[in-house]
Write a protein that binds this DNA or RNA. Sequence first.
DNA 1: GCTATTTGACCGCG
DNA 2: CGCGGTCAAATAGC
Length: 371
Amino acid sequence: MEGGWSYEQKTLISELIQGANLAKQLRAHLSSASSAETREVLINGIINSFEKALMVLKWSGPVACQPQRVPAPAVGASGIPGSPLSVNGSPCSDDFDRSAAVREQFDCRDTSKKRKMLPKWTDQVRISPDTGLEGPQDDGYSWRKYGQKDILGAKYPRSYYRCTYRNTQNCCATKQVQRSDDDHTVFEITYRGKHTCLQGGPSTPAPPSPEKQELKQVTHGNHQQDQSQDALARFRNGLRVDTENLDGSNITEMPRPFSFRSSSFGFVHGETHSSSGLANNTGNHGGNLSSPFLSPSTPESNYFSLSPCPMTEFGQIHNRYRSESDPAEIISATNSSANSPILDLDFSLEEVGIEPNFPFNTDGFLPKLDY
DNA sequence: GCTATTTGACCGCG
DNA sequence: CGCGGTCAAATAGC
């Protein structure tokens, strides 16, 4: 059924779910000793989600002007602080050029001021000089390089990437890749803006990652890459993924280099700390970050914050990686929300109160549940 | 021929 | 005015 939904509808649903989830997370964070930065990220995410949802409503033609079909979001009435949207505007007025207004809002070639309002976050990805595998792998999205700059005081140039689907889907996500001066095995990846394109994220095959190309530029010869491929193949063999059903009936080999969405906005890339892959999972579920498939987060990073109940925090689950040894165990899940300060990994269905044979929708949407 | 990358030019901001 | 970020023509690769 959801298969018949339009892109706008899916985006709208996704954004609203995401906004609601972020609000819940924010509420949780308000009562805890979390950092102001974390709260800021959540607030930005909420604002971003509702802005997008509102724009989709405006974008979706007559629907937006027919409250009897699509109720106006309550959030609109109170306005969004700092939102560029004119909530009190008259999108349904006769002379309102909706598509033009949407283009204005969504056009990536926007003023730098508006661009500055896009959420921004940074991942640090370490490569291993020994294996070459632990370099920044594919983050699940496809990027196109549009520039490279020598940065004052930096040893290595900075590369600029934008989403491949920038023009076709007006996806404004960009990222910058900068090799660290201090530790050349570390790449600092700054993401800006959230993907609004319909890439499948971590489950969709993507061209070779730009980071790998970065590595290519600074490492001479391809010996490292050969080793990388071997190790990756070993890892794949140990990993199964089920992107459709969780009843164990349709487990397939993981089709592609893996990357788990793990930071507030980015991904954590798998590393073969254990060459036998997920089957060697310790079974140490929930509440810890000891997944052998995660890069260790640095003290200053907020990458791997763990939700007490990750499943409830996900608005939409794309992939559910499961342990080979224990089908009820979810190794990781990725969600559609690029703004959730997530949340990993290593939890079991049981722990989050879901029956092992819980009938997940095939499109990844979680049915509404009261946890 | 199409798509991605490279790279010098350009522009806006501080 | 210098720097970071982006553009766009040229080039490379398939």
